[in-house]
């Protein structure tokens, strides 16, 4: 801030206070403080803030005011050309409808796939029960032992207990007289 105006400790209005008076927050003018009646520097500063706001608005106008009618016409022609390329009026609504339908169909498909996966997943979980291959083999062995203990003769349950004849175990069970 230029030091020629005032210093805050002289009881003058601060810049933010001047701004609030120049640009009322609610859009309606605020009552002016009594200090402004006796202080020329502050009343001048307030006028400068108001003027600055007007000038900012006027600067925008000036930029556009420099454009000639021919330049405006050229800009308008560009807009009209873009509109001609865009197809018939109101085509955006039908395009939006197409997009909305496509989006809805995609969401339905996604929901169906996700829902289907959720239904299958618990079955797969129950099937494996989170057990390792070793655990499952142990379970099968225990079931076979249980069947044997209860006297069942189910052939399918012997696989874990009965030695496979092809692995040479039969040689170890040969009669003693043949070995001698």
């Amino acid at each position: 801030m230029t030091p020629t105006v005032h210093e805050p400790n002289e009881g003058h209005l601060s810049d933010d206070r001047l701004f609030a008076l120049a640009v009322p927050p609610a859009g309606a003018p605020e009552p002016l403080p009594a200090h402004l009646l006796e202080c020329v520097a502050c009343s001048r500063s307030l006028a400068e803030w108001k003027n600055a706001l007007r000038e900012i608005g006027a600067a925008d106008e000036n930029v556009l005011a420099r454009r000639t009618p021919e330049e405006w016409s050229a800009v308008e022609e560009k807009t009209l050309a873009a509109i001609r390329r865009a197809g018939p009026a109101g085509s955006g609504s039908s395009r939006h409808l197409t997009w909305a339908l496509a989006t809805a169909a995609s969401l339905l498909l996604f929901a169906f796939l996700v829902g289907g996966r959720d239904r299958v997943a618990p079955v797969a979980f129950d099937d494996s029960s989170g057990l390792s291959a070793q655990d499952r083999a142990d379970d099968a062995l225990l079931r076979d032992v249980d069947r044997l203990a209860s006297g069942e003769e189910a052939g399918s349950g012997w696989s874990s207990l009965v030695p496979d004849p092809s692995d040479g175990a039969a040689d170890r069970t040969a009669p003693p007289e043949e070995q001698s």
Partner: peptide
């Protein structure tokens, strides 16, 4: 401005 006119045209309904 051009986009605004274009949107107005496309959504005239």
């Amino acid at each position: 401005a051009q986009e605004s006119f274009l949107r107005a045209w496309q959504n005239l309904d």
